[in-house]
């Protein structure tokens, strides 16, 4: 059985999957990620906080859309730990 981990929002704001509207997404489901790699941003008060993978693994899915409002504790993405 594979281990999965859920990345949650540490603060309220707007979730972004891209560093900039014209840039590609940080990661897509199926992509391999390393611990500490940025998978999204939360913007609040015109400041941006990096959302990172907490372990090496693979992105399974995102639970929120790009530019969707999130609250602290909301589930953002699921990773399969490698």
């Amino acid at each position: 059985m594979t281990e999965r981990t859920t990345v949650t929002a540490p603060m309220p704001g707007v979730f972004y999957r891209r560093p900039d509207p014209d840039e590609p997404t940080f990661v897509e489901p199926g992509d391999a990620v390393e611990s500490g790699e940025v998978i999204g941003l939360i913007g609040v008060m015109k400041n941006f906080h990096d959302i990172t993978a907490d372990e090496d693994g693979e992105v399974v899915e995102f639970f929120v859309e790009n530019e969707q409002e999130v609250d602290a504790g909301d589930e953002l993405a699921e990773l399969e730990v490698s």
Binding site: P12, G13, V14, G43, V44, M45, K46, E69
Partner: peptide
């Protein structure tokens, strides 16, 4: 009205 605080609210 119940007003909602926007994500842009700052200093």
């Amino acid at each position: 009205t119940q007003w909602k605080i926007s994500d842009e609210a700052d200093r």
